[in-house]
């Protein structure tokens, strides 16, 4: 297991309470596990490297949805 360091940060109480609830509902063991998960996903996942949608991309999405009968 990778070495861990202890970092102390202050966060708003309401955010903390929301995170506790979110961790529980989404099936994580505790808030620590949930925060590490979210940060890992946001920072380390190449999936989220942002690409901006162009007008051409929008048209391709519309074509796809039209072909599947979702929109007119």
């Amino acid at each position: 297991m990778e070495e861990e360091i202890e970092v102390k940060i202050s966060i708003p109480k309401t955010l903390y309470e929301k995170l506790v609830k979110e961790a529980e509902d989404t099936g994580f063991k505790d808030i620590r596990e949930f925060i590490i998960y979210v940060l890992e996903q946001l920072v380390e996942t190449s999936d989220f490297e942002g690409e901006v949608m162009s007008k051409e991309d929008e048209e391709k999405v519309k074509e796809r949805l039209r072909a599947l009968g979702y929109i007119d």
């Binding site: 999936d47 949608m53 999405v61």
Partner: peptide, 10 residues
């Protein structure tokens, strides 16, 4: 999924 599978996965 149709919109964001490639371009906006977050």
């Amino acid at each position: 999924g149709h919109v964001c599978m490639v371009k906006c996965r977050k």
